[in-house]
């Protein structure tokens, strides 16, 4: 389990999610693909957190422990917030899908083209 291998997994997952987001016509399917992409990003962040330490320490005299903790767990913190935001986003996204379904009777995004340029 090296950093590169984990990043490999993350990249593959991201690519799969991207494909799904671009190539599917069902709105809910697109949302699911986006969730896959979020997961891929989280994996990458946590991998970096596990295998590296971010640079740029401050000069304020805090203990090594605190600094180390702060620096070393930054990736995981990012993931927490990503998960939170993803949850909020999927909730709202699905709400929108349902509203659209109520109004148009379809969730096929190819039928929803009013923003054409």
């Amino acid at each position: 389990m090296t950093l590169e291998n984990v990043l490999l997994v993350s990249s593959v997952l991201f690519a799969i999610g991207l494909y799904g987001a671009l190539a599917k016509s069902n709105a809910i399917m697109i949302l699911m693909s986006i969730e896959i992409m979020f997961n891929a990003v989280n994996i990458a962040a946590i991998a970096f957190s596990r295998f590296t330490v971010p640079a740029g320490l401050t000069d304020t005299p805090i203990t090594v422990t605190q600094q180390a903790v702060q620096r070393a767990l930054t990736g995981q913190m990012l993931s927490v917030f990503v998960i939170t935001a993803a949850a909020a986003e999927v909730a709202l996204g699905l709400a929108l899908v349902i509203v659209v379904y109520r109004q148009r009777g379809t969730v096929d995004v190819t039928d929803l083209t009013e923003m054409s340029g």
């Binding site: 990249s11 991201f14 069902n26 379904y101 096929d108």
Partner: peptide, 26 residues
């Protein structure tokens, strides 16, 4: 709630392009 089962996970016209782009990005 969205009783669009028959439609399901249909692919749209961008299948090939999306696959290429995603593969390249990955």
């Amino acid at each position: 709630l969205v009783r669009d089962m028959p439609g399901g996970g249909k692919d749209n016209h961008l299948k090939v392009v999306a696959a290429t782009v995603a593969a390249l990005l990955g």
